Amino acid sequence: MIRTAVPAEAERVVALHARARATYYPDGAPQDGTDWLAAWRSAIERPDGHVLCVVEQGRLVGLASFRTPEGAPVHTVKLFQFHVDPDHWRSGIGTALHTACVEQWRADGRHTAVLDVHVDNRRAQAFYARQGWSPDPENPPAEGDHHLWLRYAVPGERPGKERGTTGE
């Protein structure tokens, strides 16, 4: 089942986040002082954001956090976090969760989604490519940056275009 996360699940969300994130850091996830419990509580409680979670047999096995980032066009959404429990990789959970995100973006009137992915996270890069994400031409990689920016065109009709017209 895919549904909106609730504040009481924040500790479970942090645990899944840590398990998934640790897989793409060869020496373990860096400890940068981030209070992930506070960060996830904030994400779950934000009125301008969404945290979707996948629950199977009472266990949290996937999650996605997204919202319009500060200063971005109103029709753009940023996927801040997207994680599937490593024990459930290649089971279809990620694809189902991505589909749920796209449905929400479409319902919210979003046209474009962006994300950044760690350069060492090849598994995630391949997953996003299969979903239709591509390198963001407006954010090419900077020298020494450890993240790649990707862009996704949210399918659906655009406001102001009539069906059957070219828009020219």
Rank of each mutant, 00 (worst) to 15 (best):
R123D: 08
L97P: 00
P159I: 08
Y24T: 09
A18F: 13
A124K: 00
A113Y: 04
I44S: 15
P69H: 02
R3C: 08
V154L: 09
R90I: 10
A72M: 07
E143D: 08
T95F: 05
V119P: 07
H75W: 02
T166K: 14
R106T: 13
T23I: 11
S65E: 11
A15E: 10
E11C: 08
T68N: 12
Q131W: 07
A39T: 06
F82D: 11
G92L: 08
S91Y: 00
D85V: 14
V119M: 11
G28Y: 11
R158Y: 08
A22L: 10
I93Y: 01
H118M: 03
D108E: 10
D145P: 04
G33T: 00
K161F: 11
W40T: 04
W40Y: 09
R90V: 11
M1P: 14
F127I: 01
A18I: 12
E11G: 13
A153Y: 08
R41E: 01
G167E: 06
T165W: 03
V61C: 02
F127N: 02
E9W: 01
A15W: 03
E157V: 03
G109W: 07
A153S: 15
D87T: 01
P137L: 06
M1E: 13
H98R: 04
S65K: 01
D35Q: 14
V55S: 11
G71I: 03
L97M: 04
H111C: 06
N121D: 06
A5V: 02
R158K: 13
D35N: 15
H17W: 13
A20K: 00
W89I: 13
F82I: 12
R123I: 11
R46A: 14
G28M: 10
A5C: 06
D87S: 04
T112H: 03
D48C: 13
R3K: 08
Q31E: 15
P141K: 07
P69C: 02
Y25M: 13
D85I: 13
G33K: 00
H146Q: 09
V154I: 12
P73F: 01
R106S: 09
Q131N: 03
T99A: 15
P135F: 03
K161P: 00
P141M: 07
V74E: 10
D27A: 08
H146D: 03
P159G: 09
A153R: 15
T34C: 09
L60G: 00
P86S: 02
T34Q: 11
P141H: 03
F80Y: 11
E45I: 12
V13Y: 02
R110L: 10
V51D: 08
H17I: 04
R130V: 05
D108G: 06
D145S: 15
N121V: 09
N121T: 06
D27M: 05
E9G: 01
L79Y: 06
V119A: 12
E45R: 14
A124V: 01
R67S: 14
E103G: 04
F82T: 12
V77C: 15
A43N: 07
R158C: 07
E56T: 11
F80C: 07
A10P: 12
P47Y: 06
T76L: 11
Q81Y: 11
W36P: 07
W105G: 05
H111S: 09
P159R: 11
G156F: 05
A126P: 00
L37D: 02
S65A: 15
W36K: 09
R90N: 14
E9D: 01
